[in-house]
Amino acid sequence: MRLRIGAIAAALIVIPASAVSAADLDQLLDESREASYTAEQVITCSTPDGVRSGVVEIEQSGGSLHLSGEVEVVSGNGGWESVQGDSVVTSASVKAAETHIDPVYTVDDGSAHPFLDRKAGLYRLYVGDVLRGELIVDGGTGAMLSVVTYNEDGTVYCERRFIEFDPTPPVPSQSSLSGTGAIEPTDSVSTLPENLGDFQRLDIYQDDEGLVFAYYSDGFFSFAVFETPVVVTLEGATTVTFDRGAYVRSFTPGQAIYVWQTGAGGMAMIGDLPPDMHEAVLAALPAPSEPGLLQRLWRSLFG
């Protein structure tokens, strides 16, 4: 794999991008994961609930990211940890099953597209004829200097653009991320569907508290669906009504979060997929419903 990545990186540097045959999305993504750099990124997302934007400092090395904003986040290799001050706010660790995603996207021939005074290539992602993404890939490191994602109607959903980029590998993170206590994928039967449109269910997890969650991807966008026996709380959210009922929704820069109640408990969907995909995904999941009298009583008394 590294030889192949190296060959592609060399091709991006030496061969004019327009001469490269149709790019392989997986290879572009692999290169980006392996890149080591320090950068500052601006994120701007035009969501149905308003614009969400932010600036974040990034250090990436060894497949792990360290992001500094108001809250520091360290993520990579199956771990995630948010830190505020000297305290770990939340953390999680998971393992993944070996899965293969059927390709959904086609990527056009890269074209030269200098960015931040660096040699870079521009690649467009399509589903059929619909443009879904534009990637500007650094010719030297493979890092994605800019990622623009589109709604189905051609409007921009999110733009993530580096405004500073230093290809010098950062000092390795002192992250406490470890694989200890990682949740393993389960083979248990779940009501969560194996396919949601173009999205494939890659892994499903269940913890001791009865929380079940499944991870879906179409090869570029991804989301997780959570089923819990208790209610999911989401602050600062708005209520949105689709054909199947009312959902509580919130957007962060780059992520959409939906929360709703079902007769069995609570559900949530979190992911980076564009808003035009949301309703179709939610429509294939258990619909919102108010719990029955006995369920409310049971939950109130016993949680």
């Binding site: 993504l29 692999d30 980006s32 994961r33 990124q41 994120i43 969400r52 934007s53 932010g54 974040v56 990034i58 497949g63 792990s64 990211l65 992001l67 904003g69 108001e70 809250v71 986040v73 993520s75 990579g76 290799n77 199956g78 771990g79 995630w80 940890e81 948010s82 505020q84 939340t90 999680a92 660790s93 998971v94 393992k95 993944a96 995603i101 994605m144 990622v147 999110c158 993530r160 949740i183 892994d203 997890y205 969650f213 991870y215 991807s217 090869g219 570029f220 991804s222 997780a224 959570f226 999911v232 962060t252 820069p253 780059g254 992520q255 979060i257 949530a268 979190i270 992911g271 980076d272």
Partner: peptide, 27 residues
Amino acid sequence: LNSRYGARASLDPAFGPAKVILPQLMD
């Protein structure tokens, strides 16, 4: 839930800055 999604997304081939959730980073 974010933490679990973030942990799993970090194993995604498309993992990168775009996949990381920054709940407090909101303007």
